[in-house]
């Protein structure tokens, strides 16, 4: 009885402790999601808490990193893993292995949408004794012609945007649909974070200084829910990068005998009207 009480108290305290913690986000970042014509694109793949430059975590390697591009009716997959280089990403007070890639212009020279997909390895969240795997998408457009930005790419779980994620004005509503094995995930829980500590590509760091003054922890990581069709909506209040992570929506729920949260992440970029 005493043990159970202590355990409950411990759990309650732990929940209390972790409640204000920032969300984990698989960051697939390149400075611009639109190019008038193809140029070399510099990428960083980092598992971190992008808001407030929180802890950096070891993503457990990269299973796949590729881009899908549609020319005519043909959807082509291009492996981008060969361009990855090991780096260490450092945020104030934390650092971990991460990846950099310079994607040559020749790989993205065709006009239209290039849907970049990152399938990382597994990260063990020791406090909760569960693994995490965040399958991440970022859509880069070249030349302005829309091609396949609103089509699923066949991932175990993914967020399919319903508005071009590279053509958002501040104030637009971003809508997406959460899929698991191609089927909508009703009532999916989605965490939303703003990249308020912009990555420094030269030093592979995030600065301590934030561009946002967060008045309470609930504003650091916002939580929203999808409807019965897996569709969610979020009004974009500020220009910059916004990450959406649908939690535990993937079909895989176990890894190495432990629980697994297989999440779907998408990054979008909003612009001010000037």
């Amino acid at each position: 009885m005493k043990k159970a009480l202590l355990s409950s108290l411990g759990l309650a305290a732990c929940v209390l402790c972790t409640a204000p913690a920032h969300a984990h986000f698989m960051m697939t970042y390149t400075p611009e999601t639109y190019m008038q014509k193809a140029e070399n694109a510099d990428f960083r793949l980092v598992f971190t808490h992008p808001t407030e430059a929180g802890s950096v975590m070891d993503m457990g390697g990269v299973q796949e990193f590729y881009a899908m591009h549609k020319r005519g009716d043909n959807l082509k997959k291009t492996d981008m893993k060969k361009y990855l280089k090991d780096i260490t990403w450092a945020n104030p007070g934390s650092k971990a292995p991460a990846y950099a890639a310079t994607i040559p212009a020749k790989e993205i020279r065709s006009m239209g949408d290039h849907v970049f997909v990152l399938i990382p390895g597994y990260y063990l969240e020791k406090e909760e004794d569960v693994y995490m795997q965040q399958i991440s998408k970022l859509i880069l457009n070249v030349g302005g012609a829309p091609t396949s930005w609103n089509e699923p790419v066949g991932l175990p779980t993914e967020i399919v945007p319903m508005i071009k994620p590279y053509a958002l004005w501040t104030g637009n509503i971003f809508q997406g649909q959460v899929l698991s094995k191609g089927k909508p995930v009703a009532n999916a829980e989605i965490e939303v974070e703003y990249m308020s500590n912009m990555p420094n590509m030269a030093t592979n760091t995030m600065p301590k200084e934030s561009s946002v003054d967060y008045k309470n922890p609930s504003l650091v990581t916002q939580t929203i829910f999808a409807d019965e069709n897996g569709v969610f909506s979020f009004g974009i209040p500020k220009a910059g990068w916004w990450g959406f992570a649908a939690l535990g929506v993937g079909p895989d729920t176990e890894y190495k005998g432990k629980g697994l949260s297989q999440d779907a992440v998408i990054w979008v970029q909003a612009n001010d009207i000037k």
């Binding site: 014509k37 193809a38 020319r71 020749k106 020279r109 065709s110 006009m111 239209g112 070249v142 030349g143 302005g144 012609a145 829309p146 091609t147």
Partner: peptide, 24 residues
């Protein structure tokens, strides 16, 4: 919609041009 044109060198003495419109 707007007309769009993108051309790239194939490095074999030819280049490819792609046309399109902003509405797809």
């Amino acid at each position: 919609h707007s007309a769009l044109l993108n051309c790239f060198d194939n490095a074999d003495g030819t280049f490819t041009c792609q046309g399109g419109y902003s509405d797809g």
